[in-house]
Structures are given as C-alpha cells and as structure tokens.
Write a protein that binds this DNA or RNA. Structure first.
Lengths: 189, 189
DNA sequence: GCATTTGCCTAATACCTTTAGGCAAATTAG
DNA sequence: CTAATTTGCCTAAAGGTATTAGGCAAATGC
C-alpha cells in the first residue's frame, strides 16, 4: 500500500489537466482516481465531493486567467490594452478549453466574491481608463466587453465560426477595432 | 399495464419542460421516465440514448427560438429590427433558461446544418440589411452580434450582472444603442 | 376472432457518487 | 529507538444513471 501523496492541490491541478483533455463535464472523481491509480474513495479525504472538486478547478482557472490577463495588460493602455486583454482571454480558452469551461461554472455568491472573478472585473474597468467613461456608462461598457469576449470565445470554441470561408481571426480583429472605435466615440459624447 | 402513449415528440417536449424547471444538465432519461411514471428502459424505444434526447431538446429549442425571433423581426428594419431580434433572444432565455442552455449544445456538423441554426444566421444577416455592409464585414458583424447577444444573455443568466446597483436592463439598452451606432458608422466607412 | 406489431416491463450489467469503518505507513513523543 | 498517534489509502456497501436483451400484453390490421 504505497502512498501516492494526494493533496487537494494536486487533485485540483490534475483535475484541470483532465478537463483540458476530455472536457470539463467529463471530469469525475472516478476518472481522477484512475489517473492517480488510486481507489475512488481515497479522494474523499481531500475533496468534499464532486461539486467541490469542480468548484476548485473553476477557482484555479479563474486565478490563472486573471494572472495571464494581468500580465498581458501590464504597461499597456488604450486599444493596445484592450487587444492584449482580449487576446489573453481568447488564447487561454484555446490552450485550456476545459479550464475555460470550468471558469464559467456558476459559483455561489460568497465563493464568487472571494474568487479571482473580482480581479477580472477590476481589470476590465482598468482597460476602460483609457477611454474616460463616467458611471454608469463604465458599468455598461464593462458588461458589454465581458459579453463580447465571452460570447465570441464560447461560440468560437463551439465551432460556430468554422463553417464559413472567412477566418475567425479576421472577425476577431474587426471586433476589437469596432469596440475601440465605439468606446472612443462614447468618450467624446 | 396501461400504455401511457410515449412518443419521441412527447419525450422531447417534456424534456424541454424539465430542462426549464431543473436545468438542462439535470435532464436525464431517469428523470424523464419518472415524470411519465414509466420504467426507464421504456424510453429507449423512442430515444436512442441520453445524448439523442438532449440533441432533440436542443433542436426543439433552436426552432422555437428561431420562430420567436422571426416573429419579432417581421416588418421591422434598422435599429428597430436589431432591438426586436435581441430582445426576442434575451426574453427566450429568461422564460426558458433550460431550453436556452440546450440550444447551446454542441451539435455535430451534419445535425447543425439541418437545424434551425441555419435560420438564426440568416436572420442575423437579414438584420444587417438595414446597415449596408459588404462582405467580409457582414460576416464579421454577424459574428460580433451573435457574440454580444449570446455573451450578454449567458452572463446575465449566470447572475454576473446582479451584484451592482446598475440595472441590467439599462446596460442592455446601452449595448443595443452602441451596436446600432457602430453598425451605422461602419456603413459610411 | 386471429395474427402481427408495438409498447412498456423485468432483468442484468456497468459506471459514478458517497459514506463508514479498517489497517498500515508516516509522524511524533518519550 | 521504540511506542503512540495521526494520517492516507483501502475494502465494503448502498444508491443513482445509462444501456441492452428479451418477454408479455395491449393495440392494430386482416
């Protein structure tokens, strides 16, 4: 009976890898146990239940994503910052589709409030500093940007843009141009 | 042994209702069997498997949504049409959250091609007739509109906009205004 | 009224989730 | 360095979902 050295962190990490390989909804306590070559029940000392595991993966993904966005945006402003933000977001989803889906998991309010989701909205607001919008326009813009980024990435992941000759990359660039133009227009209004 | 009169259609319909009540991911063959007070195995004469059931619910939702959008858009043009389209979309998600999630199910290419998803993109293109864009801008715009609508609705459903004082309805109106302005700007470019 | 089809059932297998309780390995104490 | 304790993974068991195979009775067609 060799001890493998399970910890909540290792399980969460492995769960995130599993999610990227087989999809977040295929992440199961059983699959994770197999991956560690350990009996299923053993995981229950480290993770409360299946939902707890998924929540931890979601929180990990939110942190990672926030870190990447923060790094991408650092030292940039205006459209540069907007594009860096958006690309960081989209790239993360491409490289880590399972984690990206995990980040979309509905968290209960307290958990969400204590998560990196807070940093996400702060960073979005930071982007908007380059386009001086005042409240409530700033909030509207935060919501719109979040919608476009999430919507685009999620439709693209679902394959919705792969049935036309027009490359998705071009539509992405066009969209970012449009958003920049739009925000600059609002600024002068 | 009274016959309940199961059919593929009734199962799909009931599955859609179940989805709205308990969430699309909670729609299971077992739950559906319970709802008809019938043994689980009995459903397998009408539905190939769990995935088949979910696909049928997704197709139903896509049809319903396309019908509503079509009705909303009929006889309108320009910003009127844009707003009608967007509202129809958002309203459907509010009234039928489970079905809305179902409509997001990833379909295999052939199934998607034969589904109402085709009507959706056609209608989006129709909206854009009010803003004469030429290819490939039109495709870009179709993708961007789809992203905004889906993104907004899905974040709103997830409760992402309910932690601020600013009412979501206002951000929605602001977003539609912005998109209209944006598309009109592109037209003159 | 009889034959056939059809619809729902029983039975069985397999996998995932979760809890309870046990034994051995690792850690700490004397 | 051994003894006591904690900790980590295990066995066992119960309950839920998915799916297939084969059976009997109700509905349908002639």
């Amino acid at each position: 009976m060799v001890r493998v050295g399970l910890t909540t962190e290792r399980l969460t990490q492995a769960g995130a890898e599993l999610a990227d390989e087989v999809g977040f909804d295929q992440v199961t306590v059983s699959a994770l146990a197999r991956r560690f070559d350990v009996k299923v029940a053993s995981l229950y000392s480290h993770v409360r239940n299946s939902h707890d595991l998924k929540t931890r993966i979601a929180l990990l993904a939110l942190e990672e994503l926030a870190d990447r966005v923060a790094a991408a945006v650092a030292g940039r402003a205006g459209k540069d910052a907007l594009a860096a933000f958006a690309d960081a977001y989209r790239d993360y989803a491409r490289v880590h589709p399972g984690r990206y889906d995990a980040a979309r998991l509905r968290l209960d309010p307290e958990t969400a409030a204590a998560s990196a989701a807070v940093r996400h909205s702060q960073m979005t607001r930071a982007i908007l500093r380059g386009y001086d919008l005042t409240e409530p326009d700033q909030t509207h813009a935060v919501r719109m940007l979040g919608s476009v980024f999430h919507g685009y990435v999620s439709l693209e992941m679902a394959g919705a843009f792969s049935h036309t000759a027009v490359p998705s990359q071009e539509s992405w660039a066009w969209t970012l141009d449009s958003l920049d133009t739009l925000l600059r227009t609002w600024t002068t209004t």
